[in-house]
């Protein structure tokens, strides 16, 4: 029974991840790309600073529309971090749009939220987000959360 179960487990992970995310397993020198979308320049600068220092390649966008443009322009992030409250297209709409792209269906998506926005979490999760980061986040919390969702 145990053998069969782990066999099934293997099939699922194998087909899903080894198959879909081949590029993410391209050896240890592969630099993971994180796309960061926020309308606040302060947030963009501080978070991208932490991420770059941790060895990630960071692509920033200052609006959902900008993010869409960059995604359409060939950026293939391993993780997307987006703010929810943005002028123009909001983060939840953006998550929905991103999730509809075939190549990004299984990409982890984190959204930035605050302690006071509990209700938004469920809405963003329903839109396809993987998890959230509570603002303001320390570098440790941020990197730990990324570790949880990023392979």
């Amino acid at each position: 029974m145990a053998g069969l179960a782990s066999g099934a487990l293997f099939i699922q992970f194998d087909t899903l991840f080894r198959g879909c995310c081949l590029h993410a397993l391209g050896g240890s020198d592969y630099v993971k790309t994180i796309m960061l979308v926020d309308d606040s320049a302060t947030v963009l600068l501080s978070i991208s600073g932490i991420l770059t220092k941790a060895g990630f390649q960071v692509v920033t966008a200052n609006s959902a529309e900008d993010g869409q443009k960059k995604l359409a322009g060939g950026t293939k992030p391993d993780l997307l971090i987006t703010d929810l409250n943005m002028p123009g297209m909001n983060g939840i709409e953006f998550i929905k749009v991103v999730r509809q792209k075939a190549e990004l269906r299984f990409m982890p998506i984190l959204f930035l939220t605050t302690e006071s926005q509990q209700a938004k979490r469920a809405e963003a999760k329903a839109a396809g987000a993987s998890g959230w980061i509570v603002k303001p986040a320390t570098a440790d919390t941020l990197l730990n959360t990324i570790k949880l969702v990023l392979r």
């Binding site: 993987s130 570790k147 949880l148």
Partner: peptide, 17 residues
Amino acid sequence: VLRQGMDPENFLRFLET
């Protein structure tokens, strides 16, 4: 869970922390 971009295996790995 997979469609939300999460990998169950990651949770197990994270539990190790």
